[in-house]
Design a protein around this nucleic acid. Structure first.
Lengths: 229, 229
DNA sequence: CGGTGGATTGAAGCAGCTCAACTTTTGTGG
DNA sequence: CCACAAAAGTTGAGCTGCTTCAATCCACCG
């Protein structure tokens, strides 16, 4: 088993966990590690994608754009998520690195070859699609029915839950990788409203903020209440 | 091939399209047709589901509920969609018939047996999950970034596109199966705002409304503009 | 140390909500 | 089949929470 894959699989179930050592080695020969800077466009909506990737580290934004420029972040992806749209020439969402992102990239044909050999691989992809569907629907209630304070609290909990794949449950101290504008686009709010509500949580003592990017959650239970569940 | 399945498959790709005639017949022996009234709970969130179904006709609401009673409809399903959460004991969304719904129901074990025999069946389920994911993300931009008038117009277009699986593109005349309260829960608005904006579209001549339930789209292009794309 | 981009804070405006009255449709029993 | 009740929908008026617009602040970097 390639050393890289060991590190990758140590986390909870990347898709490669479906492969046996031989298959893993075969795929390993067709993959490349890459590190991209924050802001890099990884997938362009409507443009045929050249390949796929597994996320080894960092945060990826999934973005949908309206013709007039309004935009909505429809999902965040973290290690060890699979990045790309299987079985389609192009995706209708764009993906952009929100932080420095480490990727394990491979071609479309390489993936298709592996799927043909290992049906369990498609099962893993299917499971991830179902998980993303659950996440998307969970976020729909946030966008449709929660107030601004509840949305901001929900966002902090979501980030705390996923930012470090090695920490089970919530991380208590972490960097918000996203800019305020990204948070606003994720929450369906304006940057001013996001800022005001972060300040409110800070003043309430529920969180602490250092240097505007580093968050400490002082009271997880209170934050959950503030998030509306 | 069972006669029932012919009618079902005539529509665009229900999951059974993945089966050969022999497999179809085998599955056919383990299925039952059922018709349920509007309002019937089909899947309860968090409760182990006894089985799955294909939708043969009607509209199904997928609902998420907050502890304090606020609710959000996170999706609508139409024929020939598959209903249920594969590979999980329970779903975290509830499903309820929004109209009289005709179903082709089968047990969990029946589905699992067929999946084991026909890998193409899982591929179909996977494709539907990806389609639902696309739909959910498309709706997230509606919830997060569109104004009330845009949301109402978007809803009418969504309904027109799916209400009759035999009509390609948009139906021009159809019944809104949903109550105003359902529409509000789908759009993240109140019933009053939904009502006002339907009236506005009617006064603008873009749609006509008869007996409060039957909609005619007079100007599809104008409705698309009103929907924000 | 000064410049730049992102973040915060304040004040005013407005879109959608709440509350309330009324209308239309649907359902039920005589 | 009609009378009546209940449910669903519409419309209006006032209010609230988020946005908009504007000024200021702060971290980072040459």
């Amino acid at each position: 088993m390639p050393v890289l894959c060991q590190a990758c699989e140590a986390r909870h179930g990347g898709i490669c966990g479906a492969l046996d050592p031989g298959q893993l080695q075969q795929l390993g020969r067709q993959t490349a590690r890459r590190e991209v800077a924050a802001g890099t466009q990884l997938v362009a909506a409507g443009v045929p994608a050249d390949g796929y990737a597994n996320i080894l580290g960092g945060v990826v934004k999934l973005i949908k754009l309206m013709p007039d420029g309004r935009q909505q972040i429809v999902g965040l992806q973290f290690a060890p998520d699979f990045l790309g749209r299987p079985f389609a020439d192009s995706s209708d969402v764009s993906a952009e690195a929100a932080s420095t992102v480490r990727l394990c990239v491979f071609s479309r044909s390489a993936l298709e070859r592996m799927v043909a050999q290992a049906p369990a691989l498609e099962h893993r992809l299917h499971q991830q699609a179902l998980r993303e569907l659950d996440d998307a629907r969970e976020w729909m209630i946030t966008l449709g029915r929660k107030s601004a304070p509840e949305r901001v609290a929900s966002f902090l909990l979501l980030l705390a839950a996923h930012i470090d794949p090695l920490v089970p449950g919530y991380s208590t101290t972490f960097d918000i990788t996203l800019k305020r504008a990204d948070i606003a686009d994720f929450l369906g709010l304006t940057i001013e409203t996001v800022s005001r509500n972060l300040s409110a949580l800070r003043k309430a003592g529920i969180i602490s903020i250092e240097r505007r990017r580093c968050i400490t959650i002082n009271d997880t239970a209170a934050l959950e209440v503030a998030a509306g569940r």
